[in-house]
């Protein structure tokens, strides 16, 4: 899948009759990492949910490769292109790490068990494949969700606070993985309170200043 540019065209979001941001325009080229920053309540998560297609914007449009992602063919195409990992990691406590990943990946494309084991090893969960996730710590559960980044083929990643509850070594590994994805031509859009200034080529969108 060849990544295409993402374009935000005067996007606006309103929650409970309060305007979070308006006329947000932005062009993202393949290979870019965008950090969405801003104080609590500035609409970071709402923006990511709009971009993922979970929340309709109150005005404006978003285009992927020139086609609107909110209707018709563009929406169907966008569903195949973007991977969204939200605040809630979508990890079921009663299922094991392997079962969780097998199902989450199958929602877009089924993957082989060997790959799942490899991905779990890469996020530092070797030996925890068969443990029900409610026996894992919060950080480990988050790692299970993030293992999808090593499994799925989507060119665009939308990550809401991916570093929550992850230790220093894990954050460093994840940063490297995100930069590698961008270097391969992928696009990453993420929110985090963790500073990314030390990473090369990360663009920052401060919603506190847009609104």
């Amino acid at each position: 899948m060849k990544p295409l540019p993402v374009e935000l065209d005067s996007l606006a979001c309103e929650r409970d009759q309060r305007e979070l941001f308006a006329s947000l325009s932005l062009q993202l080229e393949p290979g870019e990492v965008l950090q969405v920053a801003g104080p609590n309540g500035s609409g970071k998560t709402s923006l990511l949910r709009i971009m993922a297609g979970l929340l309709p914007p109150s005005a404006g449009d978003m285009r992927y490769g020139g086609e609107s992602v909110f209707s018709g063919v563009g929406r169907e195409n966008w569903r195949q292109q973007r991977l969204y990992i939200g605040h809630a990691p979508a990890v079921k406590g009663a299922l094991t790490a392997e079962e969780n990943l097998a199902w989450l990946c199958a929602l877009s494309r089924p993957v082989a068990n060997d790959h799942i084991w490899q991905a779990l090893e890469q996020v530092g969960l070797r030996g925890f494949e068969d443990v029900p996730c409610h026996n894992l710590s919060a950080g480990q559960q988050r790692r299970v969700a993030l293992a999808r980044l090593y499994l799925e083929q989507h060119p665009v990643w939308i990550l809401d606070e991916p570093f929550t509850a992850i230790d220093k070594a894990g954050v460093a590994a994840l940063e490297t993985h995100i930069l590698q994805h961008a270097a391969r031509g992928g696009l990453v859009i993420m929110t985090t309170h963790h500073g990314l200034e030390h990473l090369p080529g990360v663009r920052c969108l401060d919603l506190g200043q847009v609104g």
């Binding site: 993922a52 569903r79 195949q80 969204y84 939200g86 990691p89 979508a90 079921k92 929602l107 877009s108």
Partner: peptide, 17 residues
């Protein structure tokens, strides 16, 4: 409800299926 609370439902809605 449990699928809603742990975020699974978001992933279902976003799925191409």
């Amino acid at each position: 409800r449990s699928d809603y609370e742990d975020g699974s439902l978001e992933q279902w809605v976003l799925s191409p299926h």
